[in-house]
Design a protein around this nucleic acid. Structure first.
Lengths: 247, 247
DNA sequence: AGTGCGCTTTGACGCAGATCAACTTTTGAG
DNA sequence: CTCAAAAGTTGATCTGCGTCAAAGCGCACT
């Protein structure tokens, strides 16, 4: 509550990406109104922790802007990122009180939150929302399983290309025209990329350099990435997807 | 339909594990009746394919007995298992017509099936089932993410121990008493284990031998595994879970 | 401008696990 | 029981990535 940003709290769902892509995608106006009534906003600075594994999380939320990561840690410090939350992604689960992963903002993060009790009540009375939630969870499951293939069977170079390709695909607006090239900002440090890919940061750095040397990507500074040919990138990623359209 | 086994088709939910652990867990008798009315059984032999990736799947199902795997394949033949279906696990997703993975029986498999159209109708009219489905999907998502840690950060030896520990934990009945030892049948070949763990079958074989040599497991034949001390196995797996209870 | 700190790059070297290959054990069909 | 195919074991060698170490940025401080 103390983190609520006044100007954002005044926005309504019409200004909020989740209206289109997340929980309320298929809702009636009257149902939207119910969501409106219980939502509020939170903002986090880069590096700030939203929740530690095992913490009670008394809200569910959609990412409005920025990025956050879900990470698991072993006692000896080995870490594995298990989710990357980009705008329109959903965190938190109805029916479970605590979260199993560390949730950390990796860039300036704005989330649209719903406190658990009224949200869970809403689920029970609004089948559209429950349905949409199931659909989103199934999508996440697909993403997790695709990532299992990356972690288990791909080479370091393919892993990097896969990650870039996933982030690029999420960045649709700038490539909505048929063009096969695009530019985007990498929201992750080399270390975070390594945690996502099951590599060390040195290997990540080396392979990014290799992709740059081979013309697959062009770096403008450390974080801004230009992809001259998306098909080439996806080929490097070993994706069997045709990639015909970005959607 | 042609695969339906007559004697099984006559069973009712009272004989069927899914009554207790899968879709109908929290249902009223009247709701159970609705599931009864649309369910039927299928059986598969070891090695038989239930569905290829991309196939239409016109039913959802719960595993009654046996085991099946979900596998992804790259064009060059690299394979990654993304799910292991044991009794009470659920396959198929409402709202999506085709499946994204190969589904293959790895031992004699019996599934309790529900055709899509009536099942989807049931979801819309029976909130208990929709809720339960969301909960199961969230559990699967947790399992997938736990597996990401295994694939991304664990050593070959830890991977093997993790897999054995997961299978052992599913085999609760024989360890329901407080005992910390148990024996179970491995439903997977070395190759299937390798596909699950992101290893080669040679490495799997070597590490299983190593665990045997070190007394972590005792093999009775190739497939029957005795774990003298479950705590030791879980320590080998690098699991931070206390393991206090098996449930 | 200078200084310190976090992030990134690059190099040298070692090792866990892949690869290639030979062999043994189990399974199951006839 | 017999024999062939499938599954599993074990060894020798190779290699991709991890590990350790040392510099090179870029940026926020004063």
């Amino acid at each position: 509550m103390s983190m609520m940003t006044p100007d954002l709290a005044k926005q309504n769902c019409a200004d909020c990406p989740i209206r289109h892509r997340a929980v309320c995608a298929r809702c009636e106006p009257s149902e939207l109104k119910l969501l409106e009534d219980i939502k509020y906003y939170r903002t986090y600075e880069p590096g700030q922790t939203v929740a530690w594994a095992g913490d009670k999380m008394d809200f569910v939320a959609s990412v409005v802007s920025g990025a956050a990561t879900l990470t698991q840690t072993m006692e000896d410090g080995r870490r594995q990122m298990v989710g990357l939350l980009l705008p329109s992604d959903f965190v938190g689960r109805p029916g479970r009180s605590s979260i199993s992963y560390d949730v950390v903002a990796v860039s300036k993060l704005v989330m649209c939150c719903f406190r658990k009790p009224p949200f869970e009540q809403l689920i029970q009375t609004t089948p559209h929302i429950a349905e949409r939630l199931l659909e989103m969870t199934l999508d996440e499951l697909d993403a997790a399983r695709e990532w299992m293939l990356v972690l288990g069977r791909k080479t370091a170079r393919e892993k990097i290309a896969s990650l870039l390709s996933i982030i690029a695909r999420r960045d649709v607006p700038s490539a909505a025209d048929g063009s096969r090239s695009l530019t985007f900002d990498l929201p992750l440090t080399r270390e975070a990329m390594a945690d996502y890919l099951g590599l060390t940061l040195e290997t990540v750095s080396r392979q990014v350099s290799a992709l740059k040397r081979d013309g697959v990507v062009v770096l403008e500074g450390k974080r801004r990435v230009h992809v001259p040919d998306l098909d080439l990138l996806m080929e490097e990623a070993g994706d069997d997807s045709d990639g015909g359209t970005l959607i």
